[in-house]
């Protein structure tokens, strides 16, 4: 039987969810008997091939995030929003209390010690969305794995459920939002 293909990525996030994923320690060895990774920061594969499961950490803060998320949605049969930022916008969304202009001026013009003050406009730099958004506002999300970060056990549980053909369900002790 061919292995289940999993892709992961971090958008506007801190990679904390990925760290928590790796916190499953030696259990990853068992997991790898059934799973192979496509695009992921773990293996540095740059683009997503057709996959069974996509795990997306982080919120949407710029145009590149939207492109990556769309690539995941197009290629992954099951898309899982992982962590507070992906589900609610999280810490990156704290900038939503300010206008984009205020944010950029504070960072690149007005901040003490700014050298050569100007707002970066290189075409290589993805443009920022006016507000930070959670994933489900742009693509259909199949499952949500809450937590900041979600505990390693929760990753194991949701993946095991899917591998064994069950509807994923987290027990209460793994279902937390902090």
């Amino acid at each position: 039987m061919s292995k289940v293909r999993v892709a992961t990525t971090s958008l506007a996030g801190c990679f904390g969810c990925h760290m928590s994923f790796l916190d499953m320690d030696e259990r990853i060895v068992g997991l790898l008997e059934h799973v192979e990774f496509s695009r992921s920061p773990i293996n540095d594969i740059k683009h997503c091939e057709p996959c069974d499961i996509g795990l997306v950490e982080g919120a949407l803060c710029n145009a590149d995030n939207v492109h990556v998320l769309r690539e995941f949605r197009e290629n992954c049969k099951i898309l899982i929003a992982v962590g507070a930022c992906a589900i609610n916008g999280g810490v990156p969304a704290m900038r939503n209390h300010f206008s984009l202009q205020e944010c950029l001026e504070e960072a690149f013009l007005d901040e003490i010690g700014v050298d050569n003050p100007h707002i970066p406009n290189d075409v290589e730099i993805p443009l920022l969305l006016s507000k930070v958004h959670p994933l489900h506002e742009v693509v259909k999300v199949d499952y949500y794995l809450p937590g900041c970060p979600p505990p390693a056990d929760a990753f194991v549980k949701i993946l095991t459920d899917l591998l064994e053909g069950r509807e994923p369900a987290l027990p209460k002790n793994m279902l937390h939002y902090d």
């Binding site: 145009a63 206008s99 707002i119 406009n121 075409v123 920022l128 969305l129 006016s130 507000k131 506002e137």
Partner: peptide, 28 residues
Amino acid sequence: EMEPEFNLDASLAEARKLTRRDDAEAHL
């Protein structure tokens, strides 16, 4: 299947204005 909750391209308008960019990458 799905329509975003907001207009993605319009959401970049403010950044386009601030950076004076209008290249292909500056649109969604």
